[in-house]
Amino acid sequence: MVFSISQAFVRYIRKMEKFSFQISGGDYQNIGYVSNTIKKILNTRKISAVNSRRIAVSIFEVETNIILYARRGTIEIELDNSSVVVAANDEGKGIENVWLAMQEGYTTANEEIRRLGFGAGLGLSNINNNADILWISSKVNIGTCLILVFLI
């Protein structure tokens, strides 16, 4: 059952337009590059301002998390007329307790991250508030995988 659903999903996303980004951990200067690039692309498509905003906000948080907390990662964005799928994979310290990490205000950020104005514990809840479907899988000291689906 799970297999057939995932096969159908794979067949479905194969028809979508794809964009792929490599992210380096610690590359603070480039926070916002992926989200602003995708926002520009979405603005050239028939996507409402509300949808393009919530997609861009979510991708901003996804790329920020990789840069702040992981060694490296990839973000793949797939879109068609009815949906946008964002898949992020990173190699890094992972999330020990996903439920806790989802709580607004919970953070494991260090002093350096906080000094930049990040690490307030709002990132994952921002994603959760904006995405229609959010799937998180993580293993400590291995990495984290996020899949976000936006129905547009």
Binding site: G32, Y33, S35, A56, F60, G117
Partner: peptide, 10 residues
Amino acid sequence: HVNIVAVATL
């Protein structure tokens, strides 16, 4: 720092 510009643009 430069990240504020990314936020403002977004």
